[in-house]
């Protein structure tokens, strides 16, 4: 109960922040919340199930392109958004059917290769996808019924709604029977199998849920900021959620949001001081894996906050 209150409290603060933040940070906050949904999705696979994927940009971009291409050709935005979700989950399922036959480093490389192939495909069929430059979405394409996603306030609340659903969804998942099985797979897959669980199915389900959230994030991101481009399918976008989750704390509900926000502003600040923002990402990766592999909230949980989900 206390933990539910904590999460609702965080969401309430975010809702209040809408009225307090100056315009620049206001846009950033909306961006962070949508990207946090991506991180939350990544966390389901990596943090809870122990699946270290290097190819999640594939699911993010699948959602973004499914939605973007549909609305760009005059599709109904609501349906396009739904298509983005389905695309994320379905692509994750297809990749999982193959990639989950491997584990550890092989799984990382296989997911990386699939994502890379997709990125290259976007570049190769540039006539259809807009290639590296991508395409922008018109105002009409970004209108979900009465909600105009080009409007900052609407955008903020849609992002908040999305991150709320994702966060409370994870909270429910973690406390469910399925959540317990996923954690068991992460901790010791062989033992879990000998308790009678089809661990392949469990992992596939986790990856699909993860892909669904990633697809939702990609889809909404495209609609909100009106742009769909090949860079979202590049390897950098597979690495980012890994960093966000590592930083906030893998296997914690609030970690992805915290990590996304911190990393976003870390890069934002560093790029105002130096042009070497990429080095900051690299240094963050190495520093985290060396000194704080459990991330901020994971470390807090180890130091006494044991109830933290």
């Amino acid at each position: 109960m206390r933990m539910l209150a904590l999460h609702l409290g965080v969401l309430a603060v975010l809702a209040a922040a809408q009225f307090l933040l100056p315009a620049y940070h206001h846009t950033n906050a909306a961006r962070i919340m949508v990207l946090a949904v991506y991180a939350i999705g990544y966390n389901i696979a990596f943090g809870y199930t122990g699946l270290l994927s290097l190819g999640h940009a594939l699911f993010f971009a699948a959602g973004m392109y499914a939605t973007g291409l549909l609305v760009d050709r005059g599709g109904e935005p609501w349906l396009a958004l739904l298509a983005g979700l389905v695309a994320g989950g379905a692509v994750a399922g297809a990749v999982g059917l193959l990639a989950l036959r491997t584990a550890g480093p092989a799984f990382m490389i296989v997911t990386l290769m699939f994502a890379q192939a997709f990125h290259l495909a976007i570049l190769y069929w540039g006539g259809f996808t807009g290639g590296d430059e991508g395409f922008t979405l018109s105002g009409a394409a970004r209108r979900l019924g009465p909600l105009d996603l080009a409007d900052p306030t609407t955008r903020y609340f849609v992002a908040l709604a999305l991150v709320s659903v994702a966060m409370l969804g994870t909270l429910a998942l973690v406390r469910s029977r399925l959540g317990r099985v996923l954690v068991a797979v992460r901790e010791n897959e062989e033992r879990t199998r000998m308790l009678g669980y089809d661990t392949f199915r469990a992992k596939l389900l986790a990856l699909m849920l993860s892909g669904l959230a990633s697809g939702a994030a990609g889809s909404t991101y495209g609609l909100m900021f009106g742009y769909v481009g090949g860079s979202f399918a590049a390897i950098q976008y597979s690495i980012l959620p890994l960093i966000w989750v590592l930083m906030g704390g893998a296997g914690t509900v609030l970690g992805p949001l915290l990590g996304t926000a911190l990393m976003f502003y870390l890069i934002d600040l560093s790029s105002s001081v130096t042009t070497a923002s990429q080095a900051v990402v690299g240094a963050a990766l190495i520093g985290l894996i060396l000194f704080a592999p459990r991330g901020i909230l994971g470390t807090l949980r180890e130091r006494g906050l044991r109830g933290l989900p």
Partner: peptide
């Protein structure tokens, strides 16, 4: 080490 070498790549 894969995560760390990705970091190294960026740097």
């Amino acid at each position: 080490t894969i995560v760390a070498t990705i970091g190294l790549l960026y740097i």
